[in-house]
Design a protein around this nucleic acid. Structure first.
Lengths: 209, 209, 209, 209
DNA sequence: CATGAATGAGCTTTCATTCAT
DNA sequence: GATGAATGAAAGCTCATTCAT
């Protein structure tokens, strides 16, 4: 829709192509924010840098976001769904490899986003953000618990461990990959970690079946 | 020499409480820094605040520390030894309770310090600090590994898990206590977590012995 | 002197002001700096004062100059060419009046700038600036020497004095005008000084020719 | 009141040595101030540095001087007499060598003091100091003028130059020695300068007598 | 008297945010 | 809408001066 059409119409709302460009700018700013936050930390990155990295002026930054904080919030909201791990399929042959591949799939995505490194800083800085993050982690946790419950129903897992604690452990371990396991090109060797997690979940006899 | 002794003597001696008092001020600043850093985050706390929280003027802050960063370093150095877990004793009856009490002992101390929450922020902000922290974590890790090895020699632990990964997992799980387990007065219920960690370490038949 | 030269000497500006208004602000800052430096001395003037004298905020000062020192450098460089005296024409009737008018022309300009009063302070304060100033003075000195040499070739000047020392003397005397000779409105009576300088240069018989 | 009286009257305070010591401290502070002012400039030197250079505490500095400015004033007052050049003796054989030796004597002393480099900075900074300095220079100037007048009475000097201007020129030239003439160990070769000054004073025929 | 720790005003510099162009 | 110059609050740090010991 051309600008001319715009004038014919009510003349209040910006038209489609404008919205599209605007959306692109917004996206560019989000992406620049993400990259710089991860590279330098949240507090060490300022609006001007984000704008110039996105190829726009500072003023433009403030057209799309009220401030840096709001951009951060948007980033988290945009990406928060990706934090959810996939629903595991418990009928499998080699649970250790299977788990490793699930983690690989999931955490390669999270690592691409990379925001998780910022969370501790943000938690202290901004209680509202802390709430959003806590909610997201709760979702992840619940998803893991629900997966574990299904396995439990099938009698696949240890009977004596508290599921919440096991789920928490899985989440925490997955979020804290030792440097040692990060290979070249950011590839991570999840296999050893997967074995540890499997130990928490499955009694050894399961593997023999 | 106590201040009381001072008064007994001929008059008012300008004895040596100068250094003592100065050290007290330094300690007060360190403590204020610690408290505020934990409460508000490292970046959100400034020298003026630390000084006034410690009941001194800004200039005094700069008499004892070149800047906020150096205070942080001092805090870390003062406390870094406490991060080392005690050497566990593997001859025991109830490993789960035992482990829980070891963690309780150790982490109640760390939580009193509370600096560990700041580490992720500092890692991004200050590479030099990141090195110090990494070195400290390596020490902790090595200590855990060495404990595990002793247990391994006694044939107490699973044979199929990589000790480094298990040690890492213990460290990470111990550092990330779920809120759920934090009871009133900051007391933490380590028992469930201990059970999880024991599962990583000991095969079930060990418990029957 | 072109901006290109500027950059070579001073370094990189925080941002290169592109717009006309920006240039005007920069000029206003330079002028305010000049006036205040002369009025109160370099050390007694701070960035805030310069900014508010120029009618802008402190932040604006730092948009155009990294600090007070750089502003001073710019001032010096902007004006340093004016320190060079004109090449004298030795074929004349009344050398004393002629010299007086040359000095008048030249030093009225320098006094308008007024920065020369600051130089001694700067020499002690800033070795790099001292070098720039020394280079400028060397230029002036060389110009005088070259003028003297031309006169020497024509046999117009005393044969027994060292030209370097005479040139230095001329420069120093010209830079240090006695208060007594400063009349109202900053007008200076150079005639007596000119006579003194002429005595250093020309033997009396020259005047009779 | 003699020091002896002191003891008779009060008999409590350790009179003699302390006053003496106090004077020594004052002298040490003055000397340290002088050295540091010359080395780094007036504004660049602070009370603490002066004190520690003199081997006393800051507080002690403020016992003897209200502030840095007062120390500077004292320095100037203490040394101002030395700025006065000796009365020249106009009956001589080789005026150029004679003048050179007079300057040598006199300015080696001034250079030992070295404060003259600070004057321009102080003139702008402190009008009251400016007055003191102006008065001192006036004294020097008057002394030179009076010397010139005696020579004039003997018909030894050019008749057509203004004595004030000649005296000023001598003063200014003597105060501004070109680097070139400063030899190793701070020794200055005054001979060439002396020739220049002699040219201002004596007609050539005088030398033949 | 001497000391030097403590003070806090004041200077430099940065940066989130606004606004004239 | 987009721009980036301008703003000024606020942080970092210094140093002349005071004062308890």
């Amino acid at each position: 829709m051309s600008e001319h059409d715009d004038e014919k119409l009510i003349g209040v709302y910006p038209s489609v192509p404008k919205q599209k460009r605007a959306q692109e700018k917004r996206q560019a700013l989000l992406e620049s924010g993400r990259v710089l936050f991860i590279e330098k930390g949240y507090e060490q990155t300022n609006a001007k840098e984000i704008a110039s990295h996105a190829g726009v002026a500072v003023g433009t930054f403030y057209r799309y976001f009220t401030d840096k904080r709001q951009l951060m919030m948007s980033l988290l909201e945009d990406q928060i769904d990706k934090l959810l791990p996939p629903e595991p399929n418990w009928s499998f042959v080699d649970p250790e490899r299977f788990f490793a591949s699930v983690m690989e799939q999931h955490y390669s995505q999270i690592n691409q986003i990379g925001l998780h490194r910022l969370l501790p800083e943000l938690l202290l800085k901004d209680p509202q953000l802390a709430d959003i993050i806590a909610a997201a982690r709760k979702k992840v946790h619940d998803r893991i618990v629900s997966g574990l419950k299904k396995a439990q129903e099938k009698g696949l897992i240890w009977g004596d461990l508290d599921l919440d604690t096991v789920a928490w452990s899985i989440m925490v371990l997955s979020e804290n990959i030792p440097e040692r396991l990060v290979k070249s090109k950011g590839q991570v060797d999840y296999y050893e970690l997967s074995k540890v997690i499997c130990r928490l979940v499955f009694p050894p006899q399961i593997f023999k079946q």
